[in-house]
Design a protein around this nucleic acid. Structure first.
Length: 722
DNA sequence: CGTGCGTCGATTTTT
DNA sequence: TCGACGCACG
């Protein structure tokens, strides 16, 4: 046990060895957060304060849960499987499988991922003859999810206008449809579990008594419902004594408000659970001093922080390099030149990251990397279980397990094509709607040619079910792929080879899954291999790309970089309107969230940090003239070193401008102003003309940086050329 | 039923 | 500019 606590700094040690009480740990970037979390669990168990049985550890991603489990296995001699460690959704799934009857769900309920949910909503709107122009399915999905994430059912939803009243009705219809089909979307997993525990006192008491220690990772990312869920399990406001909450988080790294995260939960936790001393982990083991100084200086501009200052004993290190390019291409070229230099200097390519605010920015970078022959890997994009061929195969599996799963039915009823067109499907949907039954059950009532074709499909499914009852999961999937016609279909497709490989990969994934399950036979409630594999597929979307590019430079959004670290980091596109993004100015505390995002980006770097921006950028097919990001100005100049040439538009027409086609130059001169020119405005200050319209009421669009983008009429606006 | 063209729109994303 | 999606045609 002394090993366990060795090499912990005083704050880490204090956090790990806290007596049983509610705790909030403010863990800065690179401060050993995961180590504290796992060591805390190991310490609690090895000192006999709690058995593995009494531990509940919650994370947001499967990756984080796996990492925790792996570290615990290394620390403890016991099998950490006895503990409940997982994502909110994974743990809720586990609870709902175990108590599906009490929760009002079929034993084999399916989980709808976002795409499934969207198609379920589209189907619903069609059935109810709702105009999907007026009620866009995406918007409706967001409306429903946002309510569920606040813990609000359709029956409790408030509506003060007709439009919202209708959306609440549709929310109720959606709930009914899901119930009928025996499916649950992501938010439903949480809400259903929450309601189950609220309603069912014996069950609630059971779990409250069981989980003596509830540990939460990335607490700043919790939404309203997740916090309610935690409070319920910890017996907040209950007369009974509940377990202790040990929440670890960093308000400065809260970057998911757009998907419902409530940073305010941290303060609420502190207040409601009467946490007297919040422990701060401020010693950083990742970055050199200059990088941390820059991060600290930046984040100081945010208000209402819990407060924290990162420090290191690693020394100041190199200055932060700042580069200004003429154009996005110029910027990318610089970054790639530097990347090659770094690789020559023995930086491993995987330790070099190119970060950007939005995915569209990766194109220029990729182009330059490709031209230079530098291997790279782009994070994000399609994940394994999101691939259409995989979803098709799983839809067959779902239909066999649960014929009422209309989402799965609609997906494969005519894939591969078997003569069941949209007209037949519509007829079937209508019949099902009339009979208030599933598509599968309504199939028998269809007559004529359509009826015959659909009947044949039903028989195919019945046959598949009969043929696979005696098989183990991987064999079942293999069989389905062959006999459903999927394999034949992709064999005949020119782009089909990769898809076939993915189908084979799916069989392998099932094999691995079954083996894994066998090691953990402790869960009889998960003994249905098909159901648990399907849940696994929905809850864990899998890797973006399989093991590709071992020696590749890493490209990703700043969001995707959270939690990662690299020797060298490039933060690109540091321009007003891009980073901070212009849309953020419309959002409540939008700029502060952008600043936290920048803070996350900066703190990814260990040794070297580049901040780059461009004067012009191709955006939506148009050249945009950009001002440097406000965030660059917020960094102390003494930490920075400007590298490369820094030309200015104000001085003279820049090469980028001069290189623009003559037509564009002519068009862009309006009332003595031209695009790219810097101007001064009495109220908005310094700006750059981004575009212009001539004619009688000539006006120009000006990027005023912090003050945003404005269209100003030349007849009225007082603009001074700079 | 599949293909081709035109329109529209365009942060960030995990489960 | 690029892509995704919806509708018209063969």
């Amino acid at each position: 046990m002394s090993d366990l606590l060795a090499n912990l700094n005083p704050e880490q040690l204090a956090a790990v060895t806290l007596p049983p009480q509610h705790a909030l740990i403010l863990a800065g970037a690179g401060s050993g957060k995961t180590r504290v979390l796992t060591t805390r669990i190991a310490w609690l168990i090895s000192t006999g304060q709690v058995g593995p049985h009494g531990v509940l550890a919650v994370t947001f991603t499967n990756k984080a849960a796996k990492e925790m489990l792996a570290r615990l296995s290394a620390m403890l001699p016991i099998n950490p499987r006895g503990m409940w460690i997982g994502t909110f959704h994974g743990l809720c799934n586990r609870l709902l499988r175990a108590h599906h009857r009490e929760a009002g769900l079929p034993a084999t309920f399916q989980i709808l991922d976002s795409a499934d949910q969207l198609s379920a909503i589209k189907r619903l709107l069609k059935n109810l003859n709702v105009d999907d122009e007026k009620y866009p399915p995406r918007e409706l999905a967001h409306f429903i999810n946002a309510h569920k994430e606040q813990g609000i059912r359709a029956a409790q939803a408030e509506a003060y206008d007709d439009y919202t009243r209708r959306r609440v009705e549709l929310y109720a219809e959606y709930e009914a449809q899901c119930q009928r089909e025996g499916v649950a979307d992501f938010a439903e997993l949480l809400l259903r579990t929450y309601e189950l525990l609220c309603r069912n006192e014996p069950l609630r008491r059971h779990y409250q008594a069981r989980f003596r220690h509830i540990l939460v990772d990335e607490f700043q990312d919790t939404n309203v419902l997740q916090y309610k869920w935690l409070k319920l399990l910890a017996s907040y406001g209950d007369p009974v004594e509940g377990g202790c909450i040990f929440a670890v988080g960093d308000d400065d790294q809260s970057i998911y408000a757009f998907r419902g995260a409530e940073v305010g939960n941290m303060r609420d936790l502190e207040r409601e659970f009467k946490i007297a001393n919040v422990i701060r982990l401020e010693q950083n083991y990742r970055s050199h001093g200059n990088i941390l100084d820059a991060a600290n200086a930046l984040i100081k501009n945010n208000r209402g922080r819990l407060g924290k200052n990162l420090w290191t004993d690693a020394g100041a290190g190199e200055p932060i390099r700042v580069f200004e390019g003429f154009s996005d291409i110029d910027e990318a070229r610089f970054a790639v030149d530097e990347v090659r230099e770094l690789i020559r200097d023995d930086f491993p390519p995987t330790q070099i990251a190119l970060l950007y605010r939005s995915n569209a920015q990766s194109r220029v970078l990729e182009h330059q990397l490709f031209s230079a022959g530098v291997p790279y890997r782009v994070h994000g994009g399609l994940r394994f279980f999101d691939r259409q061929e995989v979803k098709h195969a799983l839809a067959y599996l779902r239909l066999i397990a649960n014929p009422d799963d209309d989402t799965a039915f609609a997906r494969v009823v005519n894939f591969p094509t078997r003569g069941i067109g949209s007209r037949s499907v519509e007829a079937l949907q209508e019949a099902a709607h009339r009979a208030n039954s599933s598509l599968y059950n309504a199939a028998a009532s269809l007559t004529g040619k359509a009826g015959a074709a659909v009947g044949q499909f039903i028989r195919l499914i019945e046959t598949l079910r009969a043929e696979t009852t005696a098989l183990v999961l991987p064999e079942v999937i293999e069989h389905l792929i062959d006999r459903s016609g999927l394999r034949a279909h992709y064999l005949g497709e020119k782009e089909g080879r990769e898809r076939l490989e993915n189908l084979d990969e799916l069989v392998s994934a099932a094999t691995a899954f079954v083996q894994e399950e066998e090691g953990t036979l402790a869960h009889p409630e998960e003994s249905d291999a098909v159901a648990s594999f399907l849940a696994h597929a929905s809850l864990e979307a899998g890797e973006h790309q399989a093991g590709e590019g071992q020696e590749a430079v890493q490209l990703m959004t700043v969001h995707a970089a959270k939690g990662l670290e690299f020797d060298a980091v490039f933060i690109t596109g540091l321009e007003q309107g891009l980073f901070p993004h212009e849309n953020s100015s419309q959002e409540r505390d939008g700029l502060e969230e952008e600043r936290r995002l920048m803070y996350v980006a900066v703190t990814r770097a260990r040794r070297r940090l580049y901040l780059t921006h461009a004067q012009t950028r191709m955006l939506h097919g148009q050249t945009r003239y950009c001002l440097p990001s406000l965030f660059l100005e917020e960094l102390p100049e003494e930490l920075l070193r400007r590298v490369g040439a820094t030309p200015s538009f104000a001085a003279s027409p820049t090469p980028a401008y001069a290189a623009a086609p003559a037509r564009q130059r002519e068009e862009s001169t309006v009332g003595g102003f031209r695009i790219g020119q810097s101007v001064q405005h009495a109220k908005f200050g310094l700006g750059v003309i981004v575009s212009a319209e001539g004619g009688a009421d000539a006006r120009v669009q000006i990027n005023f940086g912090v003050h945003g983008m404005k269209w100003l009429a030349l007849a009225y606006a007082k603009l001074t050329p700079v």
